[in-house]
Design a protein around this nucleic acid. Sequence first.
DNA 1: CGTTTCGTTGAAGAGTGTCAAGGCCAGTGG
DNA 2: CCACTGGCCTTGACACTCTTCAACGAAACG
Lengths: 248, 248
Amino acid sequence: MNAPSFSALHLKVACSNCNLRELCLPIGLSLAEVDKLEELVATRKRIKRGDSLFRAGDRFESLYAVRLGFLKSTVVSADGREQVTGFHMAGELVGMDGISNEQHSCDTVALEDTEVCVIPYDRIEEVATSVPALRSHFHKVMSREIVREHGVMLLLGSMHAEERLAAFLLNLSQRFEARGYSRSEFVLRMTRAEIGSFLGLKLETVSRALSRFATDGLIEVNQKHVRIVDPEGLRAIMTGQGSQSEPR
Amino acid sequence: MNAPSFSALHLKVACSNCNLRELCLPIGLSLAEVDKLEELVATRKRIKRGDSLFRAGDRFESLYAVRLGFLKSTVVSADGREQVTGFHMAGELVGMDGISNEQHSCDTVALEDTEVCVIPYDRIEEVATSVPALRSHFHKVMSREIVREHGVMLLLGSMHAEERLAAFLLNLSQRFEARGYSRSEFVLRMTRAEIGSFLGLKLETVSRALSRFATDGLIEVNQKHVRIVDPEGLRAIMTGQGSQSEPR
DNA sequence: CGTTTCGTTGAAGAGTGTCAAGGCCAGTGG
DNA sequence: CCACTGGCCTTGACACTCTTCAACGAAACG
């Protein structure tokens, strides 16, 4: 390590001082419990844009809490098809896919320079014995991931291209807002192809839908920069009410 | 209850005697640990075909281990679109969606007369403190659900109709086999529309694909009864190698 | 036995994918 | 500093898969 004292400092103030704690932690933990939690976080890790945090097949050892940055997770089928299963931003926990097999089943790659807290899984299991509130919170986080994926299945299984993209933009918007960023203006960290993979569409379809939204005055797009002009309009599209000029 | 003594008997022999234990339980539990586990299971519950085990919005209180029967889970979007998120058979655990919010987010409905073990969630939390092996197993079960859903996302996001259906049939086949039933001959408990909803297709497309598989000699279909004649052929279709007469 | 639900099949049309060409932008090396 | 390169994005034309609509047959149910 280049700067051990820097790392140590970081370790000391982890969690209790972290501006992500409302996202990571259960509310109402006692100070003693937060202390316990801080023992969890072994180290920080930086991942440069394009590098992977872990890959399918890697031995599972830790979960990771995103501190800063942006990642994607992808699964690859036997015949080589790739599917983006999610995008992850600050405050989110990644790596839970690895628990079942003691081995990761997806790749997780940084889409911009990223920093994560490394949480060794055996420590989580230890703390799960002694701090019920943390264990219970951990269960909720896993359950929330299951519910999130139900939502993605609904999107992939029953929505049209523009509906999917509207839902995607609104979801991003809401997540940025929850982190204190603008809900109406943000930068897409991923390519059109990656959005397409996540939404079950081709990149051209994503591009066309974005262009259509722009000409309809719902958003402004400039490459990766997006401004949401008419969130209600997007919501209408998402729920299948987009441009029904003729009610029969 | 009509037959309390019968219920009590069932309670007594639960788990340690259950022929699903390889599916439900972690291997290598001590007898004392299995005892602990049996305390978990409060009651059995029977759900008649068409009735629901729980509905979206219901207060979350318990997980359910399917003992016998067949269920589907569905989510409904704000605008009324319905998506089947999974089918559940003996040995599988359902209800984990409810943990995150203390409230269920999907409907789970019996597709045939079904019997489940009711496992009150607060008991799980208790036992999670005292029996690490069970807690760890529970985490793996949740993680496995996350991984399963990744697989569904891959299917919905990147596969064609016949590829999806082939994958679906092979998945069912493999699950039946794991439960000691025939892997080549089984009854579909769900309608074409339900298969379609799960696979992101219309019922007509499901019907056509099944017919095509039948005329190609891959399967035999008679209404809900399916016989898999050529599993390798299905696997080839699933991986996108279906009927490539002309290799360029 | 009538009624309803479920399944099959055909024909036509909509929505996406595919292929191709060209533009924009950042990074690189001359 | 500028030209070049390669990745990313946009747009058009066309092909193809899947959906939609419709009619009918078969099985399940009361």
